[in-house]
C-alpha cells in the first residue's frame, strides 16, 4: 500500500523529517506516536501534498506510484484522505455542497458517474445516521463556527463518504471528549477492511483503546526509533518517551 524510504523533509530550510522509513500493507492499521516536535504532523502533511514542505531526499510509493509527484487533489483521487488536525473553516461554503463537490471530483477523476443532489443526500444521510450525527451540520458553512468536536466529526463524516484506501488521521483525537472519541473510532472502525489501510497519528494511547492498531511506531527527531505491536503503546503510556529517546541517542 504505502512504502516510505529514508524520507527527509524540511520547511523554511528547517529539516524536520530526517530519514523516515515505513512500510504499510493493505488492511493494516499503523499508529504513529511521539513527543511534540517529533515530525508527526509534518509526515501527514507531506503525505497529503502540502507544497510548503520540501522533500529533500527519499521516496514515497503508494500503490506502485511515486506519490511525491502527485498534486494534493490527485492524491485524493487515488484514494488518500487526511483527517486534519485543525480542519479549516470555509465561510460561505455550504457543507453539503462542499462534500458533494469533493465526492464528485473524485468520482469524475476516476471516470465514475457523478452523483446528483438527490442521490448524494440519500448517501450522506445514511452516513450521518451511522455516525449518530446531527443533520444540522449539513446546512452550515464548512467548519464555520463548529466546536472542536463538531469539526472532527465532520472530518470523519467526509472520510466515511469518500471511502479512502489510505486514511491518515492527524491527531484526530486531540481535544475530544469521550463521546466524540467513541464516534470518531466508530467511523474509523466501520471503514476497516482488507483493502484499506490507516495511519493513525496520536499523542495518546487512549485512542488506541478504540482503534486497535496492528503496529505502533515511535517517531522522535524525525525518525522512527522503535516499532512494535499495540503493547508498545501501553508501555509508552506508562514510561513516557524518555527511555526510548535515550536508547536511540546511545
Amino acid at each position: 500500500m504505502l512504502s516510505i524510504k529514508d524520507l527527509q523533509a524540511s520547511i523554511n530550510g528547517k529539516e524536520i523529517l530526517k530519514g523516515l522509513s515505513l512500510e504499510m500493507g493493505a488492511g493494516e492499521v499503523h499508529a504513529i506516536m511521539g513527543p511534540n516536535g517529533s515530525g508527526k504532523s509534518t509526515l501527514s502533511k507531506v503525505l497529503a501534498g502540502r507544497e510548503e514542505y520540501e522533500v529533500t531526499s527519499g521516496t514515497v510509493t503508494y500503490q506502485g506510484v511515486n506519490l511525491l509527484e502527485l498534486s494534493p487533489e490527485e492524491r485524493a483521487h487515488q484514494g488518500i484522505f487526511m483527517a486534519f488536525q485543525y480542519p479549516v473553516e470555509l465561510p460561505g461554503v455550504n457543507n453539503t455542497y462542499f462534500m458533494q463537490a469533493s465526492l464528485n471530483a473524485i468520482r469524475k477523476a476516476r471516470g465514475e458517474p457523478e452523483l446528483n443532489s438527490l442521490n448524494f443526500m440519500k448517501l450522506v444521510r445514511t452516513k450521518l445516521k451511522a455516525l449518530e450525527m446531527d443533520e444540522s451540520l449539513l446546512k452550515r458553512a464548512v467548519n464555520t463556527g463548529f466546536s472542536g468536536g463538531e469539526m472532527k466529526r465532520n472530518e470523519i463524516l467526509q472520510m466515511t463518504l469518500l471511502e479512502p484506501r489510505l486514511s491518515i488521521l492527524d491527531e484526530t483525537d486531540s481535544g475530544l471528549d469521550i463521546d466524540a472519541l467513541r464516534m470518531v473510532s466508530m467511523g474509523v472502525n466501520s471503514l476497516r477492511s482488507p483493502e484499506r489501510s490507516m495511519l493513525v497519528i496520536t499523542h495518546y494511547q487512549r485512542l488506541l483503546d478504540y482503534i486497535q492498531p496492528d503496529y505502533v511506531h515511535v517517531l522522535s527527531g524525525g525518525r522512527i526509533i522503535r516499532s512494535g505491536d499495540k503493547s508498545l503503546a501501553l508501555e509508552l503510556e506508562e514510561k513516557g518517551y524518555g527511555w526510548l529517546q535515550e536508547e536511540a541517542a546511545a
Binding site: G49, S71, E73, A105
Partner: peptide, 25 residues
C-alpha cells in the same frame, strides 16, 4: 485552498469556491 484540494477538488475549482463562499455570505 489546501483543504479543498486535499478533498479532491482541483485548484481552479477550489479557488472559485473560496471566492464564491466569501461573496455568498
Amino acid at each position: 485552498l489546501f483543504y479543498l484540494r486535499a478533498r479532491g477538488i482541483p485548484k481552479a475549482e477550489a479557488t472559485s469556491l473560496i471566492c464564491q463562499g466569501f461573496a455568498a455570505e
